[in-house]
């Protein structure tokens, strides 16, 4: 596990990620309460047993987060999901993957 700062996210992941060696599992968000959101970018290594590399950070709900879809195209799904379910803002990512106008707003947030 490695803690990173949200400003350095793109540099950290660019320097770490190699498509042939690392597998991006998903981006996980967890609401810790009191306007704190824990984000985890979970990677594994191909051909290695049970080896995880996890980048994590704690941010607030007001921040606009950077997107990593330029480095990892398949991250767009995870990012769109947390935009919908947690109501965070990610640059260039729109919600509406699961929810529409009549749905509850950011259902997985515990602080609301």
């Amino acid at each position: 596990m490695q803690e990173i700062k949200i400003e350095n996210l793109i540099e950290e992941i660019t320097s770490f990620y190699d498509p042939k060696l690392h597998h991006f599992v998903c981006l996980n968000a967890n609401d810790l309460g009191e306007n704190r959101l824990k984000l985890q970018w979970i990677f594994t290594f191909y051909n290695q047993e049970d080896n995880y590399q996890i980048f994590w950070t704690i941010c607030s709900f007001d921040e606009v987060l950077p997107t990593i879809t330029k480095i990892i195209p398949s991250a767009i799904m995870s990012e769109a999901e947390i935009v919908d379910l947690f109501g965070v803002q990610i640059k260039d990512i729109q919600g509406g993957l699961y929810l529409d106008e009549t749905s509850p707003i950011s259902p997985l947030r515990c602080s609301i």
């Binding site: 599992v25 979970i42 398949s74 799904m77």
Partner: peptide, 27 residues
């Protein structure tokens, strides 16, 4: 992929389910 977070009570704090088709859509 399953991420579980428990805080010592009967209820789990977070369950994250990542399914195969979910991350394959861009592909």
């Amino acid at each position: 992929f399953y991420y579980l977070n428990a805080n010592g009570t009967n209820m789990l704090q977070r369950v994250r389910i990542k399914t195969p088709t979910f991350s394959q859509i861009p592909g």
